[in-house]
Design a protein around this nucleic acid. Structure first.
Length: 864
RNA sequence: GCCCCCAUGGCGGAAUUGGUAGACGCGGCAGACUCAAAAUCUGUUGCCCGCGAGGGCGUGUUGGUUCGAGUCCGACUGGGGGCACCA
């Protein structure tokens, strides 16, 4: 298309880079502490520098940017920083596959992605940029770890890990697929290693109970965290061991949530990992074999589901705790977890399905002790299903007749009186294992000395930096085989010692970066206390729901750990949280069943989809989350090049509610693009009519008043929408206002003044969403300065209310007419007007009104 | 298996929280401009019956509460998410 045919055309390429430069040069988005203004900290989850940004980032950062720009316009002192979650496994994989050093790879990716983010026109304060792989960042993390260690929040523990014997490394649970290493395919072994743990369980109760006072977090996330923490009330009970192999006076401690069913016990079961099992296995080869067998069982969901309940009858028994003279057999059972409770349980088959399955297999007795409501105690029996609901206790001596909750209280009191147990609260939450046998992570600042044990690196020797001269041609952690780095003198005795070669879980890096952003330049501390106190907590945090548990829970823990060592007085890092939905796209498969990229296909006129290269048929699959493996991805760079950042941003905000998944479509993008062009045309034509200089002389016409009302209503509505994260509704209101502007024909100076007022409001309203276009239009309107610095429009309350309202008239609940009435017309008048309507009279068919319901300004319902 | 969420035109989604269902956008249809196409503009567009005026139906299914239900309650169906032998 030649430019002569299109006199008004918005050149986004020139315009977008022009305004990005202007913001940059003026330092528009630099944040400075200013106590005169209310602060607002907007943060989007920082990206892993994988190479290029993807559409998920575009969506996430667009949403955050709308909030940041809106708050700025509302007069808040906004902090909106960005950084890089820069440590992690992909860098090491790149090193192995492409022979690039992880550091080089990471920093090159950061440079690329920073350029991409800048092209989006985000209102970020880049002067605060941090990368977690930088020693100036992680040194503080090492220091905090030492402080936590000293405070008793970090400790070493032997733990079972997934060991890949080919890579010589530990694998996370999700890296084990069907019992094999995800990379090597080697059968994963379980090994016991001494690992660093952080005591997140110390805060289990607080992390749980505080969720209730976090109203600006999604209910869903709070629920997921609550389930993850998994509080359950119950009792620990001490059973006296008897039989061959029991030490005199030895007890077996179990945890149960159903102490009320103790009279129904028929066996005891301990975990294969229980110390007692190990002791018995020493002189019981069959038991040793059974334990080995249990360890082999995989951790995958399918295996757990199908795993049969198995047990091994040991020589031991226990004395029944409430039935004198009786004993219960002790089994080692594959379904008992060492990590939960005490690693030992008592089995009551009548009231626990798992125990029932077990007992049916080994022929043990089933003794019902809870009677369902209305059941007959003489005939009630347990069949294939355990009875797990509330009922009346029977067959249980002094508990008989009580309800389940009452019986729990009674038996716990009884056990506590006799010193045989006590009521406790148990959590599913485990401590946070933070050791990783990897190179590209933050070194754990510890030294292993044969004489002194594990010794902290002295604070003056921090940071412990990663050595650059490492090789990735052999599997395993290159730090382990480094010729010099791991040799160090023991800080305590001075003798030769070894450095810890494990590095931290990268979730630590992201557990405090938001604190660092408050004062990223400080060297002597993780952050400046005053700055941190001013900016924190994060007022609005935005990111993917996939971080609902781990990242958010770890950050909440880290904040408490910092509180413990008196670095802050804060409990919670994030005041408001929003979890955005994914970006999806249709999937395409060629005839040979391979995936195709969206730009490899072509749509024919009839709607059929074919491969662009050879017109072979293509199967269109359902829309799924964009992923490289299915090739249903669209490159943000390309979109920004072809359509501009504002189009991409506008599309991300239109139609789909931000918390739901968004379907990326070519039609949607071009619709967004057309609107940008239309706006530019519309406003430049209106401004060309000499609008900006117009002054109102005399009263506004009805049409002008309607337009002004529309503008002021839009301002009020969009403010509410942005604050409630209803960006799609805000977009709809902007379309409506644009339509109103387009339909308005200014003929008088008053009209032109009304139009100028509306355009002025309009441009400020679109500024958070399409900031480049807004700046351009702002200049076109003849306004000085940046729209980014302009205040948000304040709606005139007098223009928000209509003087006439449309009232619906129903007869027996069915709509029969509408009435145009003055606002707040009294009930009697509205009723009379409704009854006078011809359609209403017809619908009433001569019958008298039995009742008339009038809701002022809304509805009149005549019941006949 | 347990816990949680969701279901509205051809499509994405609105609906002041119990008061005119379908805002706004996409797509479709008709028209204008054009030699033609693209772009743009105008009109129209929930479904069914009817030439028409008009009428009927309609928020996954079903039952209930209410003058009035997309919205509240019960049951069911379908889709999505979280947890996974948690004693």
């Amino acid at each position: 298309m030649s430019s002569s045919q299109s006199p008004v055309r918005y050149n986004f390429r020139e315009t977008e880079s022009k305004w990005q430069k202007a913001w940059d040069e003026r330092g528009t988005f630099r944040a400075k502490m200013d106590r005169a203004k209310p602060k607002y900290y907007v943060l989007e989850m920082f990206p892993y520098p994988s190479g290029r940004i993807h559409m998920g980032h575009v969506r996430n950062y667009t949403q955050g940017d709308v909030v940041a720009r809106y708050r700025r316009a509302r007069g808040f002192n906004v902090l909106h920083p960005m950084g890089w979650d820069a440590f992690g496994l992909p860098a090491e994989n790149a090193a192995m596959q492409m022979k690039v050093h992880p550091k080089k790879w990471t920093y090159e990716n950061i440079a690329t992605m920073k350029g991409q983010l800048k092209s989006m026109g985000l209102s970020l304060d880049w002067s605060r940029e941090v990368a977690t792989c930088d020693p100036s960042y992680y040194r503080h993390q090492q220091k905090m770890f030492l402080d936590f260690w000293q405070a008793g929040l970090a400790y070493r523990k032997e733990a079972w890990v997934n060991w890949d014997p080919v890579d010589n490394t530990v694998l996370a649970n999700e890296q084990v697929i069907d019992g094999k290493g995800w990379r090597t395919g080697a059968t994963v072994e379980r090994r016991k290693l001494s690992q660093w743990n952080l005591k997140i369980t110390h805060y289990a109760e607080e992390l749980l109970s505080r969720l209730e006072s976090m109203p600006r977090w999604p209910e869903k996330v709070r629920l997921m965290q609550a389930n993850w923490i998994g509080r359950s009330e119950g009792a620990r009970v001490f059973f006296a061991l008897t039989g061959e192999g029991a030490e005199p006076g030895e007890t077996l401690e179990i945890f149960t949530t159903r102490p009320d069913t103790l009279f129904g016990a028929s066996f005891m079961a301990i975990s294969p990992d229980h110390p007692l099992a190990a002791r018995l296995a020493k002189d019981d080869a069959a038991l040793a074999a059974f334990i080995a067998e249990c360890r082999k069982t995989g951790t995958s969901a399918a295996e757990i589901e199908t795993a049969e309940k198995k047990g091994y009858r040991t020589r031991l028994s226990v004395k029944h705790i409430v039935k004198d003279g009786e004993t219960l057999p002790v089994y080692v059972a594959n379904f008992v977890l060492m990590e939960y409770g005490t690693g030992a349980i008592f089995g009551c088959p009548a009231h626990d399905q798992r125990d029932l399955d077990f007992v049916r297999k080994y022929g043990l007795p089933v003794i019902p002790v809870v009677l369902p409501k209305d059941a007959d105690p003489r005939s009630f029996t347990i069949g294939a299903e355990a009875f797990v609901e509330d009922g009346t206790i029977y067959n249980s001596a002094f508990l008989n007749g009580l309800s389940v909750p009452d019986a729990k209280r009674a038996i716990i009191r009884h056990l506590e009186d006799k010193g045989q147990g006590k009521g406790t609260v148990q959590y599913r939450l485990r401590d946070w294992l933070v050791s990783r046998q990897r190179y590209w992570g933050c070194p754990i600042p510890a030294i292993h000395c044969d004489a002194c044990g594990v010794v902290p690196v002295p604070a003056k020797d921090l940071p412990v930096t990663l050595p650059d001269d490492v090789e990735f041609d052999t599997p395993g952690n290159p730090l382990d085989r480094h010729p010099t780095w791991n040799h160090v003198a023991c800080p305590s005795c001075g003798k030769p010692a070894r450095r810890e070669t494990d590095t931290f879980d990268t979730f630590i890096d992201s557990s405090w970066y938001f604190d660092r952003f408050t004062s990223p330049g400080v060297e002597s501390a993780p952050f400046d206390r005053e700055e941190n106190h001013y900016w924190m907590p994060v007022d609005q945090y935005i990111g993917g729901v996939e971080h609902a548990i781990l990242h958010l829970l770890y950050s909440r823990f880290w904040t408490r750990a910092m509180r413990e060592v008196r670095m802050t007085g804060r409990d919670e890092p994030f005041d408001g949280l929003f979890t955005q939905g994914m970006v999806c796209h249709e999937t395409y498969r060629a005839a040979d069943n391979t995936w195709l990229f969206p730009d490899e296909i072509k749509r024919l006129d009839g709607g059929a989809v074919v491969r662009a290269s050879d017109s072979s048929p293509v199967t269109v699959g359902r829309s799924e989350k964009m992923s490289k493996s299915k090739k249903n991805v669209v490159d943000p760079d390309q979109i920004i090049r072809d359509y501009g950042a504002d189009t991409a941003r506008w599309f991300m905000l239109s139609d789909s509610p931000p918390e739901r998944d968004l379907e990326w479509t070519e039609a949607g993008v071009s619709g967004a693009w057309r609107f940008q062009q239309r706006l530019y045309r519309l406003l430049s034509e209106a401004i060309g009519g000499g609008v900006s200089a117009a002054k109102a002389n005399g009263a506004f016409s009805d049409a002008a008043m309607t337009l002004r009302r529309a503008a002021h209503k839009a301002a009020a509505g969009i403010s509410a929408d942005i604050e409630a994260f209803h960006f799609n509704k805000a977009v709809a209101r902007l379309y409506e206002l644009a339509n109103a502007i387009e339909g308005f024909k200014a003929t008088t100076d008053s009209d032109r003044a009304a139009l100028a007022e509306t355009l002025d409001i309009f441009v400020r309203l679109i500024a958070p969403m399409t900031p480049h276009l807004a700046e351009e239009l702002w200049t076109l309107l003849g306004r000085d300065g940046l729209v980014a610095d302009a205040p948000w429009p304040t709606p005139d309350a007098a223009l928000l209310a209509d003087e006439a309202v449309t009232v619906a008239v129903q007869v027996n609940g069915k709509l029969r007419a509408t009435l145009k009435l003055a606002k707040d017309t009294p009930k009697e008048k509205a009723e009379a007007a409704a009854l006078a309507e011809a359609d209403v009279i017809k619908a009433m068919a001569g019958k008298p009104a039995k009742k008339i319901v009038v809701v002022p300004n809304r509805i009149v319902n005549v019941v006949v």
